[in-house]
Design a protein around this nucleic acid. Sequence first.
DNA 1: TAGATTGTTAATCGATTAACAATC
DNA 2: TAGATTGTTAATCGATTAACAATC
Lengths: 211, 211
Amino acid sequence: MEDNKKISSAVIRRLPRYYRYLGELIESGVQRISSKELSAKMKVTASQIRQDLNNFGGFGQQGYGYNVKYLYDEIGKILGIDTSHNMVIVGAGNLGRAICNYQDFEKRGFIIKGVFDNNDTLAGENIRGIQIHMMSELADFIKKENVEIVALTIPKQAAKEIGKVVADAGVKAIWNFAHTDLNLPDDVIVENVHLSESLMRLSYAIANRES
Amino acid sequence: MEDNKKISSAVIRRLPRYYRYLGELIESGVQRISSKELSAKMKVTASQIRQDLNNFGGFGQQGYGYNVKYLYDEIGKILGIDTSHNMVIVGAGNLGRAICNYQDFEKRGFIIKGVFDNNDTLAGENIRGIQIHMMSELADFIKKENVEIVALTIPKQAAKEIGKVVADAGVKAIWNFAHTDLNLPDDVIVENVHLSESLMRLSYAIANRES
DNA sequence: TAGATTGTTAATCGATTAACAATC
DNA sequence: TAGATTGTTAATCGATTAACAATC
């Protein structure tokens, strides 16, 4: 965390998956695991697991392996889910509601402070207690409530515009579900979830299997 | 397509993005583009664009560049979206409904033949004309309707079970939104959309920016 | 033809895997 | 101590970028 060497995005991409498997091991009461055992479960090489983890420090013990709970917590810290983040959802359609209703995010420290939409018939309504606000209030709300993350579940044209608005309002990161790139300044983090691209990769795999 | 050299998944991951940009260029009436111009728009190197495309054939012309419409169509063929695929959605929650309502998928040839759930109060209902069926009918429906793709928008435990069921029923691919790996035979394609992992990567980026 | 830009080979860079000394 | 397994260095493999001859 403190030192300067840049961690490759390939490593970061794998961390949440380690975290998930370790969480499952905890639930099954497993207290220690070797890179070899974990590699068999996860279908990656043991070497890769050790290399990945050693980017962040030595979490294991020679001759023993890794303490599951300890490693789980350490990866949690690396991923920044030991602290909470205020979040809002922009777009009260099915996708926005799906995210809002998924309670596990809250357990990981992502606190949904509000949902925004520009359909006034929704004004005053709420989703499991979370208030729906009008889009016009968005920028003020972000500043007042210290919102760090905005999930954009709106069409692409609107997403481009609102992306600029929330970047100006000072959010740290945008979770972008719109089928477009946002092209914002580099200090705004953008994590894209492009479902249509995912579906096309699936389609490619169907078209080209066992060729 | 026909020849045997394996295309790397890094290349496949980029194809849908090329496709999206080319689609936008068509909409703006652009007829030709060079790898250099496209690279500026997409923020990748021109060299990478040419390398990627030449995995599949020479689509350009020296001194001219690429014909936008032609390249768009060719990438569409590579991605297999020139033919249609029957699909069902398992899970009629917000996420399942979001996918069902997203009409662009149908335009790309992904035809949603039905939605399945085990909540009997939904029996007989429909989502924009697409019938909701009970889970017990799923395997038969897949065989009868030649379903190739199943989107799983159900909790992880159920997803593991239904994954096996639909694999046995002969689907070619599963679009898995559950927060788990499915561990199915290799001949079943699994494309994962792990939203919680995406959110953790975003969280990591917040925790580690400008360090 | 001259200019532009591809297709493709070569060079570089980075990521993964293998190997093994350190050490619990 | 002997056995096991990490942390880490070295070797390999693959992906990206650079360069340029081919050619429209």
